[in-house]
Design a protein around this nucleic acid. Structure first.
Lengths: 252, 252
DNA sequence: TGAGTCAAGTTGTACAGACAACTCCACCTC
DNA sequence: GAGGTGGAGTTGTCTGTACAACTTGACTCA
């Protein structure tokens, strides 16, 4: 039936997190930025302390508040972290910026994967994969080259598609594909001939590369993509605290 | 007294998380990678289900396991996320790689901050700041230029320091400075004259830039740094799931 | 064969209580 | 004034219980 979300009422701790987020943005909690105690918040909203803690854990993971045994929590900032989908999908990201996402599908082919690709997509050696090459624009200005690899069962949904379709990710979601986890790796590369031609830069010009690997709930890879941005068009930010770390830095 | 950690026994859920992490790395949980149910794990380790859930939340945030209502958890991978300090401190990072961290302090000056810097460090306009310029090496090979800005009260601890000291961060920690949160922003810049001279690259050569801003528990900024890496020496990876997102992507 | 139904199993949410660990301020003492 | 003491307040950890929401596989029935 593909009921697209909204079926169940949102959890109480999420509602509470949203309320607190608004309160923080509105500048409640005075100049010193100290939150009320968990107990007070619990009474105020008519929930248990456990629920308050769950809500605050969300805000802490987003870098909005600190937390430390013995003292009240303190507002850190109004860090606007993005939703999972704004990070997964170029289209969603563009929309969240209030800009018009666009793109042109340059090429779609189906062919056997090489060993590295098989490993990334967790496929048997020699399996068929679907290769998509797209040029992405933000308000009609080209900013990114996207090379995406889909396993065959996903690629089949992409293949017979309008080449002008804007968002493949949203299409797949509508078809019932569930994206659950992604891993992003960010580094710097030099433009190859295709990059240069399509982005209108010189060959060997520096590009910001983001490689994304998405999996479903069972850990099966759904796509592997190599996205190359023109310099100055994108920046990545990560918040991390003593308690939770999501980012890591590797030798290039 | 500066008792350097280790005072209190580690929380049970952290011990459990470590155990489970090892078990995953050792390849327990069979070929399908399904974990036992929370109840089973709780019985096996003699803890309550709540504690098990706390431990599993850590693993999930690290991208090691999935989680989804109705089905068992599944092993995703052996993602090695780094500790907070390996991300904050170049020295700690190098050591975790098994390489020898090094560096040379090029310049230390104290002067008034410009408006942007005041905003980043949350200081009154015109406040004094401490500026440190360092060249960082990995196994004697230069890979990064670090420009760090400290507010005066922190800078005072750095100023009278051996110019050959390797880790300023660790020194500050020993002095009782507590780092609690950081924000990292990653983008691409071109080498200026100083970068080129010190890193031995051409001017305007592309560099990977990481800007870090660290605060203490109350949200007071402790440092703001602009680090520029030679291409190919570093890559950043982020794991994120539907439940938790730490990364965001911005217009450059 | 195919579709629908049901029950068992599993994770998510929420509540309540208890204690530990820690911070901070007021107070006291020297 | 300096320094130590103590207690109130706050967050961290752990346990236990109950139910809701969801997945999966077995089963039934047309």
């Amino acid at each position: 039936m593909a009921v697209a979300g909204g079926g169940t009422a949102e959890a109480r701790y999420r509602q509470l997190a949203a309320s607190l987020r608004e309160a923080i943005a509105a500048g409640a909690f005075g100049a010193d930025g100290r939150l009320p105690s968990e107990e007070k918040i619990a009474q105020q909203y008519g929930v248990s302390r456990g629920t308050v803690r769950q809500a605050l854990a969300v805000l802490r993971a987003n870098g909005l508040v600190t937390s430390r045994r013995g003292t009240r929590r303190v507002v850190l900032g109004t860090a606007r972290t993005q939703s999972f989908f704004e990070l997964l999908s170029f289209t969603r990201w563009a929309r969240s910026l209030g800009e018009e996402p666009g793109g042109r599908t340059i090429d779609v082919t189906s062919c056997p994967a090489n060993p590295l690709e098989c490993e990334q997509l967790n496929l048997e050696p020699g399996s068929q994969v679907c290769r998509v090459l797209r040029l992405r624009t933000l308000s009609r200005v080209p900013i990114m080259i996207e090379r995406t690899l889909y396993p065959e069962h996903i690629g089949a949904m992409i293949a017979g598609l309008d080449p002008h379709a804007i968002s493949h990710t949203e299409l797949l979601t509508e078809e019932g594909v569930v994206f659950a986890d992604t891993e992003h790796t960010i580094d710097l590369v030099h433009a190859d001939a295709d990059d240069a031609r399509l982005l209108g830069c010189n060959q060997d010009a520096p590009l910001m590369r983001e490689r994304r690997r998405a999996t479903d709930h069972s850990g099966r890879p759904l796509l592997w993509s190599d996205d190359r941005f023109l310099p100055g068009t994108v920046a990545f930010t990560v918040h991390n605290s003593v308690a939770t770390t999501a980012l890591s830095r590797r030798r290039g």
